[in-house]
Design a binder for these strands. Structure first.
Length: 287
DNA sequence: CGCCAGGATTGAA
DNA sequence: TTCAATCATGGC
């Protein structure tokens, strides 16, 4: 896939998706029922699957290689923090994930750090997902379990994957989707606000998780997931030494960053986590 | 507003 | 070695 302005490593490791692993010079993961290897080359991204693939459109779609990144970045405000965030990682992109995998993953993400989210999802796939072919020498790989596969599990089986109090929420969502009570596909036709209202009816899905799913799976670029890192980034970069409520940050982010605010959020999130990691000393001073 | 829900990690004792 | 604080989101 020819593409120049694409930072594969940053994109796969930026907290949007949790099933990609770096192995030497490439990345391995599972997409649908395919074991996939991806490698960044000077002129694009090289992909290989463990089984024959005739048409790679689904991978292009997942990676969003055809998205015109420069056009999106051009809509961002040209203030100092935003410029610094973009310059710190110019090829960072948003993926376009499967809605069910994305929803389930972010239900499991609540109050968890990325390493732990990966661990929970790894156990979930291993225990409930279908095994798929892998190349010689690679570790076993599994599909992300379907709503039906999760719906058939007990809460105790799910808790055994170390997801704790998130188990009932995941189970209820899987059952609602499997039974047809909740239709993830129908959200595509809805405007952002209406789709968000639907997602918020699910147990364990609040505004932050709903926005992650709307942004990462449906491509609603106006969704702006406000997690602690982004809140911290906004407070430090845009409201230094001023006391600002969450409500105010919501208002600000929905107005300030333009039609692709969600994309801007991804840059700020990455910038905050990689370049502006607060030291333990700074944290103590805050308290 | 304030508490609670697991579990991995970090840092202190 | 143990132990406590930290992380971070939604429901009540």
């Amino acid at each position: 896939m020819p593409v120049l302005d694409y930072d594969l490593a940053a994109t796969l490791d930026s907290g949007q998706a949790f099933r990609w692993r770096k192995i030497c010079d490439h990345w391995e993961g599972v997409l649908g029922a395919h074991y996939i290897r991806l490698k960044q080359t000077p002129d694009g991204i090289l992909a290989a699957s463990a089984n024959p693939v005739e048409n790679w459109d689904w991978l292009r779609h997942f990676l969003q290689v055809e998205t015109r990144l420069a056009d999106i970045v051009a809509t961002f405000p040209t203030d100092v923090p935003m410029t610094a965030a973009v310059n710190s990682c110019p090829g960072l992109r948003l993926l376009r994930q499967d809605p069910w995998e994305c929803l389930a993953s972010f239900i499991l993400s609540s109050t968890k750090q990325i390493v732990q989210i990966r661990q929970i999802i790894g156990l979930l796939c291993e225990r409930f997902g279908k095994a798929i072919p892998v190349p010689a020498g690679a570790r076993a790989a599994f599909c992300f379990p379907s709503p039906a596969q999760i719906a058939a599990a007990s809460e105790a089986d799910l808790r055994a994957c170390k997801m704790g109090f998130r188990a009932p929420g995941l189970l209820a969502a899987a059952r609602a989707i499997d039974s047809g009570t909740f239709d993830l596909e129908s959200l595509r036709q809805l405007p952002y606000a209406a789709a968000r209202v639907r997602l918020l009816t699910l147990h364990g899905v609040g505004g932050k998780i709903a926005d992650c799913v709307l942004l990462f799976a449906y491509g609603f670029d106006s969704a702006f997931p406000l997690d602690v890192w982004v809140k911290r980034a906004l407070r430090e970069l845009y409201f230094p030494k001023r006391r600002v409520t969450d409500r105010r940050l919501e208002k600000f982010s929905s107005k300030h960053f333009g039609p692709h605010a969600g994309y801007a959020q991804q840059y700020l999130f990455h910038y905050m986590r990689t370049k502006l990691k607060p030291s333990t000393k700074a944290k103590k001073q805050q308290g």
